[in-house]
Nucleic acid binder design. Structure first.
Lengths: 143, 143
DNA sequence: TTCTTGACTTAGACTGTGTCTATCTTAGGA
DNA sequence: TCCTAAGATAGACACAGTCTAAGTCAAGAA
C-alpha cells in the first residue's frame, strides 16, 4: 500500500501529464510528519534528478496544493512548508526553539468554539490551530 | 483614557529613549482591529514624519514585539502583520477573498483540546487559532 | 544652559523566498 | 514515428526583511 503510487494514479486520472520531475517531487513528499520548505523539496529532488529547476518545484507544489493533495503551512513568517497529509484533518505543534513540526489531532471541532456573536457575519469554513511550546530535546538542552 | 500615552509611559519607565520616530510608530498602531504590515506602518508613519526610514520602522516594531506590547501575526504566507491588542487574549478571523482580519474571542481554552497523548513530550504554552471564511461583503459580491 | 555620549536613525546594499518570461524539451495521442 | 500543447528550464525580477557604516540626537552631567 504505497501512498505515492496512489497519488500519482489519482493525478493521472485527472489528466496530469506524468513527468519525471513531478514524480520525484511527489516521492520526496511521501511520509508522516513531513513539512518541507520548497527549497528543501528542491534539494532532495535534485539528489535524484540533478537538473530539476526551482521553478518546476514551485509549479508542482502549487499544483498539488490546488488539487488538494498537499497543504501549505505557514507556521513562522519565513518559508512556507508543504504537508502531504492532506486527507486526514489535523493541526500543528511547533517547537519554539528548533522549529520542529508535528501533526496533532485535537479533540472536538475547533469551529464550535466561536460563538455566532463573534463571527461578524462571516461564513466560516476552517479553523487552523498552531500549538507552540518547547520540544523534549530542546527543553533538555535548555536545562 | 488614551491607550497610546499609557504605552509610551510604560516604555519610558522601561528605559526606552523616546524619539519622534518611535512615538509616531506607536500612534499609527493605536486602535481596535488594527493589523498593519510593516510597509503600511511605514507609509502611515511617513505621512506625519516624512523622513522616517524603513529600518527604523522594522526596528521599532521588533522592539515592541519583544516587549510584549504588540503581536506579530502571520495569517498568510506574505508580509507579517502587527496587532497592538496584545493585552487581551484573542484569536483571528480572516476573509478568504479580501484578507480582512478581525480579532475574535472563542469560548474555552484552545490548549485544553490537545490530549497529552498528542503532545509528544512538548511543554506547550500557546495555541493560535485562525478562523477562515467569507466576510459578509465578499459573500454579497460573489452572489 | 551647554556639553557629552551612547543609543538611535538613516540610506542603501544585501539575503531569502517566491514569481514571471522567453525559450527549449517531451509525454502521449494520432 | 511524428506532432504539438503541456511542461521544464535559466535567469531576471519582485517583495519582505536584515545588516552595516556613518551621521544624529535625547537626556543625564556639569
Amino acid at each position: 500500500m504505497n501512498k505515492m503510487s496512489d497519488l500519482l494514479e489519482r493525478l493521472r486520472d485527472r489528466g496530469w501529464r506524468l513527468t519525471s520531475q513531478r514524480r520525484v517531487v511527489a516521492e520526496v513528499l511521501d511520509g508522516d510528519h513531513v513539512h518541507l520548505t520548497a527549497d528543501e523539496v528542491h534539494a532532495r529532488a535534485a539528489e535524484r534528478l540533478p537538473e530539476i529547476s526551482r521553478a518546476t518545484v514551485y509549479n508542482t507544489l502549487g499544483e498539488l496544493v490546488a488539487l488538494g493533495e498537499v497543504l501549505e503551512v505557514a507556521t513562522d513568517g519565513r518559508a512556507k512548508r508543504y504537508d502531504p497529509n492532506a486527507h486526514r484533518p489535523h493541526q500543528h505543534l511547533v517547537c519554539f526553539a528548533c522549529g520542529t513540526i508535528r501533526d496533532v489531532h485535537p479533540t472536538g471541532d475547533p469551529l464550535a468554539s466561536l460563538p455566532s456573536a463573534e463571527r461578524f457575519g462571516f461564513t466560516i469554513t476552517t479553523a487552523e490551530v498552531t500549538y507552540r511550546g518547547l520540544c523534549a530535546d530542546c527543553a533538555r538542552s535548555a536545562a
